[in-house]
Design a protein around this nucleic acid. Structure first.
Lengths: 351, 351
DNA sequence: ATTAGCACTCAAAGAAAAAGAGTGCTAACA
DNA sequence: TGTTAGCACTCTTTTTCTTTGAGTGCTAAT
């Protein structure tokens, strides 16, 4: 488009068409694509020789490459990039598809995180890829409740509930049984000091300060506070979840060792790669540094709540992924989720 | 041993030694073992020719086989069986090893299930295999507490605690907010009707009966009871856990597709295979029916509490597993756990 | 600007040959 | 009688060489 104006137009319409056709074919077959194959396509009306000339140009420009002299062409990373940005025709979703995707979403999910995860599961089945979810709700949610429930000799269950509806519990074994007074004090102390505290701000330091300020109760209750701290940590660690890894394992073009290594430190890897400053849709290739799995790409799309990023849903698949199908799916799902978690608020407000 | 008495002794000491040596070598290398290799072993003082003769006999007896005429021998299933039952010299654990294994156990684990799982994790790292845990605590544990905690508009957290110390929670979204009276009724009703009920007996039928008997509260509280039912289901579904699958994925002699298929219905598969009537240690080979992963074996050892089976810990690995190392590890760990969960009881009693 | 024609390249597939590991058998030996 | 050296034989694995075929780049004609 804009290329035709300012810059000398290196890519005329036909070359763009050919590049798109090559990538389309490569995505389907996984084999290098030759000039004959392209020439046989219905809407290409030039001879193989012409296509060869164009492909040579496309190679010089860095969009295609040859595995070896006598093979067809395969896309380079920049080829894919151009394809995704400008060339592919992302199919508009039909009404049936939209309905099908809607049905995948668990409308009864109690929390936004659970809703997103239902989308993740569905998406991994639909695309035969792995999917990744980044729940950044820890950044949003504050502690709404901390409860202690006695459950046996010197055993207590700690329960933490956050504003986003997430719940975690933990069993603490104490040295002594708590008196009613102690339990009441603890509940009150928690309500006064932790209610409203953002989950990811609950550091060990804060806990230590709280412990220090507890006076006579310090000794008995310190272990409980430690438990509270661990609970909060649990929320934070839970940020990134990958599902459908098995879909990747089944593929021959992806090294299973690398998948294992990726899963082992997915948190770090994914965290490094998800750049909040980017647009709402981001496509990362394995060359882009840090991404352990060779020959793969990751497409992520952001979910917003009140304008702020409330989560990320993504697909991890092979480089030769059916972008024209997956990207609309992903965008539709994140769009719907964004709508739904806003609706919810209205729902609550209009009451 | 006993073979030498009643039955004509088909396997003299030397043949047993040779069989053991072949299997030892095969476990290490994974390659067919030839007569030369065995002859070069320090405590074998006969020539390759003699060994060849013996190996031919061992093959006729079904303990060894040849992949093809000009290859060495590999063990058959019966070969492995004999090896495990009689031939291998299971190394006694040294004090350091015992200490190391002790350190792997999470002594602070709040529940027996958590303790067993800590062993499972450690074991999978030590053996570079997958491990499997069957928590049959659902059969043992009864419901000790069901709590409802309001946590926002029409949102309630259900909390279920069992006698074995396991806890699960679930968020329920109701159509209406509950009155204090309703909440109190529910708590009382739960305490009266569910306390002491074994987790795996809480069927939908029982819940329906309870709902029917609730009278005026029926409509409002039915969803909560449904939630309770799902919580109990959660305990049951949680029976079998596999960890360290990645260790198997890394192996070239095990088909990763089969691993995926196994993981998909591990519950069924493992349940079918663990035969409670067996002795405390059980070694299952992939030929033994039902076990989807070819060329693998599973060693399981039972954990007891007051004589009854309270859990199962097992290792899933390749056929050519270092049984002489893994079996003592497994037996020691399950032994220690059995001790520990009994100790705990004394601990509680002497109070 | 496009295309037919053709020589050229290079991976992949196939065929043939060589190497090597291990066996079974026979005959000699203690 | 049990053990062993020797040797021919088998069958996989590795290597080397050849063939095939897809696909290219270039040239000259349209």
């Amino acid at each position: 488009m804009y290329l035709q104006k300012g810059v000398i137009c290196l890519l005329d319409e036909r070359k763009r068409k050919i590049l798109a056709a090559v990538i389309d074919a490569y995505i389907v077959t996984g084999e290098p694509v030759g000039s004959k194959t392209i020439a046989s396509l219905p809407d290409i009306r030039v001879s193989p020789a012409t296509i060869r000339n164009d492909m040579a140009v496309l190679e010089q420009l860095g969009y295609l490459e040859q595995p070896h002299t006598s093979a067809g062409r395969i896309p380079t990373y920049s080829g894919y990039r151009l394809y995704i940005d400008e060339l592919m025709n992302a199919k508009e979703l039909s009404d049936e598809e939209k309905k099908m995707l809607d049905d995948c979403l668990d409308v009864d999910a109690p929390t936004a995180d659970a809703l997103i995860e239902s989308a993740s599961k569905a998406l991994s089945e639909l695309t035969h890829c792995a999917t990744v979810v980044k729940n950044i709700s820890p950044k949003f949610s504050v502690i709404t409740k901390v409860e202690v429930i006695p459950t046996g000799k010197r055993m207590y269950v700690l329960l933490m509930i956050t504003s986003s509806g997430n719940i975690r519990n933990k069993v603490c074994r104490l040295e002594f049984d708590l008196t009613n007074e102690q339990m009441e004090f603890f509940s009150r102390y928690m309500a006064e000091n932790l209610q409203g505290v953002p989950v990811d701000e609950l550091s060990e330091e804060i806990v230590e300060q709280l412990v220090a300020a507890m006076g006579t109760y310090m000794v008995t209750l310190a272990p409980l506070l430690k438990g509270v701290c661990e609970l909060a940590e649990g929320f934070r660690d839970n940020e990134i979840k990958v599902s459908g890894e098995k879909n990747l394992l089944a593929r021959r073009d992806i090294n299973s060792g690398q998948i294992v290594r990726f899963l082992e430190n997915k948190n770090e890897v994914v965290k490094n790669m998800l750049d909040d400053s980017f647009g709402d849709l981001q496509v990362v290739f394995s060359e882009d540094g840090g991404f352990v799995i060779e020959n793969s790409s990751m497409i992520v799309s952001k979910i917003r709540k009140d304008g702020e990023i409330a989560g990320t849903l993504g697909v991890i698949g092979p480089m030769r992924l059916d972008y024209a199908k997956v990207i609309p799916y992903l965008e539709y799902l994140t769009g719907r989720i964004t709508e739904m978690i806003s609706e919810e608020d209205q729902d609550d407000e209009d009451k």
